Amino acid sequence: MDPVSYSIPQRALHWGMAALIFFNLLFTEGMEHWHHLVKRGQTVTPDDLASANIHAYVGIAILVLAVVRIGLRLVQGAPQPPAQEPPLLKLVAQATHGLLYVLLFAMPLSGAAAYYFNIGSAGDLHADVLKVVLWLLLGAHIAGALVHQFYWKTNVLARMTRGV
């Protein structure tokens, strides 16, 4: 049997991870500053390192929470898409969610490879490609939720907020 709504732990993980993801997407200056110092062979101060570490630790937290989130989804399941959603858009939503899950792993892993193991190509992938794809997918995800709420008037948004 499919659940009607997401569980409280699933909703808490969703919104907690959203906050961490937006934090790391919006506040990249510390990591970027550290990267430029290292790239130029300049001295990295303890403050520079602490600022870069915040970005890295948030990324690690996202990775750990993604593992928990996948486990919860496997155990508790997820609600089916509403019947009002056209088949093509159901496919788009499925692809968007699938790619978001891939990025929940790819972003922290590529960032860790760049930061901790000095793999430059992983850093380029992380900052130049995956970050742009993540922004696009997040925009599509939010737009899809708003279309459900205001155009189709479904309970998709309520399932992830109030649990209805």
Score class of each variant (00 low, 15 high):
residue 1 M to S: 13
residue 1 M to R: 11
residue 2 D to N: 13
residue 2 D to E: 14
residue 4 V to I: 13
residue 6 Y to Q: 09
residue 7 S to T: 15
residue 7 S to P: 02
residue 10 Q to K: 08
residue 11 R to D: 06
residue 11 R to V: 00
residue 11 R to F: 03
residue 13 L to R: 02
residue 15 W to L: 02
residue 16 G to F: 04
residue 18 A to G: 10
residue 20 L to N: 01
residue 20 L to D: 02
residue 20 L to F: 05
residue 28 T to P: 00
residue 30 G to E: 15
residue 31 M to V: 08
residue 31 M to H: 12
residue 32 E to V: 10
residue 34 W to P: 01
residue 35 H to L: 11
residue 35 H to N: 13
residue 40 R to T: 12
residue 41 G to H: 04
residue 41 G to C: 09
residue 44 V to S: 07
residue 51 S to C: 05
residue 51 S to P: 00
residue 53 N to E: 07
residue 54 I to Y: 09
residue 59 G to P: 04
residue 60 I to M: 12
residue 63 L to D: 08
residue 63 L to P: 00
residue 65 L to M: 15
residue 66 A to E: 12
residue 68 V to Q: 05
residue 71 G to F: 14
residue 73 R to E: 07
residue 74 L to W: 14
residue 77 G to Q: 11
residue 77 G to N: 12
residue 78 A to I: 03
residue 79 P to L: 03
residue 82 P to K: 06
residue 84 Q to L: 06
residue 85 E to W: 03
residue 85 E to N: 07
residue 86 P to F: 07
residue 87 P to W: 12
residue 92 V to T: 09
residue 92 V to L: 14
residue 94 Q to H: 12
residue 97 H to Y: 11
residue 98 G to M: 10
residue 98 G to V: 07
residue 99 L to M: 15
residue 100 L to M: 15
residue 100 L to T: 02
residue 102 V to R: 00
residue 103 L to Q: 04
residue 105 F to M: 09
residue 106 A to S: 01
residue 106 A to F: 07
residue 108 P to M: 09
residue 109 L to N: 00
residue 114 A to C: 01
residue 119 I to R: 09
residue 120 G to Q: 11
residue 120 G to R: 10
residue 120 G to M: 11
residue 122 A to K: 02
residue 123 G to N: 06
residue 125 L to I: 08
residue 126 H to D: 03
residue 127 A to W: 04
residue 127 A to L: 05
residue 128 D to A: 05
residue 130 L to K: 02
residue 134 L to Y: 08
residue 134 L to W: 10
residue 138 L to G: 11
residue 139 G to V: 07
residue 140 A to H: 01
residue 141 H to S: 01
residue 143 A to V: 15
residue 153 K to N: 13
residue 153 K to I: 01
residue 154 T to C: 09
residue 156 V to E: 13
residue 158 A to W: 08
residue 162 R to W: 10
residue 162 R to Q: 06
residue 163 G to I: 02
